[in-house]
């Protein structure tokens, strides 16, 4: 089966608002996909639904044909916006944690990436800066040979050098047969690495197309199109 993610009439309400409304979406394997929309448009809600942290009110979400659960968590590698590693852990303990729980985790790869950052794995996470912690999380997430990577705002609030490091880490490490979903509102920074884009506005899916199509047919960048679609 070539579809890795499928949403059918997916709807998620919170007590006072609709976060996602009747979303239909099918993503194929082997793509890098930008999940684009302003803050509060429903990007994180969709990613949380994929990861089973939320349950839809109606509709269905399928990852490799299965509803979110233990089986899908084995093949989805998730980078949340939060720094989620326990602060007391040493970097090496965080690596051990990942390799204990994820069969697809490549410990050797993780240590190689750490070495390239000149990071001492004996250090405790609480002694590291926020930026370094985020890089370590990215290394852990990208050291898995997953089928679907969900990266929630991986380049939010980082300097250009860190941004290049992050994008290079993603490009050079994701599993070729896998799909990478990158959610962001900073489109100009990442549009060169995207195959496809999905626009979300106020919980509605407004566009799903290939980047080359936007550039050839519309003759404009994704960023320009985004600014037009989401003009206030």
């Amino acid at each position: 089966m070539n579809t890795i993610l499928e949403c059918k009439s997916l709807t998620k309400n919170f007590s006072n608002l609709t976060a996602l409304s009747n979303v239909n979406l099918a993503l194929e394997r082997g793509r890098i996909i930008g999940l684009l929309g302003p803050n509060g448009s429903g990007k994180t809600t969709l990613i949380k639904l994929i990861n089973g942290l939320l349950v839809p009110n109606s509709g269905e979400i399928l990852i490799d044909g299965k509803q979110p659960g233990t089986e899908t968590k084995k093949i989805v590698s998730y980078l949340p916006e939060k720094t989620y590693l326990p602060e007391w852990m040493r970097v090496s303990q965080a690596i051990e944690f990942f390799s204990d729980f994820y069969e697809d985790f490549d410990q050797k790869k993780a240590y190689e990436m750490l070495e390239r950052l000149h990071l001492d794995s004996k250090k405790r996470l609480k002694t590291l800066s926020k930026g370094t912690k985020e890089k370590i999380q990215l290394i852990l997430v990208m050291s898995r040979k997953a089928d679907l990577y969900c990266l929630d705002e991986p380049i939010g609030g980082v300097d250009p050098a860190a941004r290049d490091y992050i994008l290079n880490t993603i490009i050079s490490n994701y599993n070729e047969n896998a799909t990478v979903i990158i959610s962001t509102h900073l489109i100009a920074d990442i549009e060169n690495i995207l195959d496809e884009v999905v626009f979300i506005k106020d919980g509605l899916l407004t566009l799903h197309t290939s980047v080359d199509d936007i550039r050839t047919k519309e003759g404009k960048s994704v960023d320009t199109l985004f600014r037009e679609v989401f003009r206030c």
Binding site: R31, S172, N192
Partner: peptide, 10 residues
């Protein structure tokens, strides 16, 4: 691809 920061597919 990494050098040019573009998608490997591209």
């Amino acid at each position: 691809a990494a050098e040019a920061t573009v998608n490997p597919n591209t």
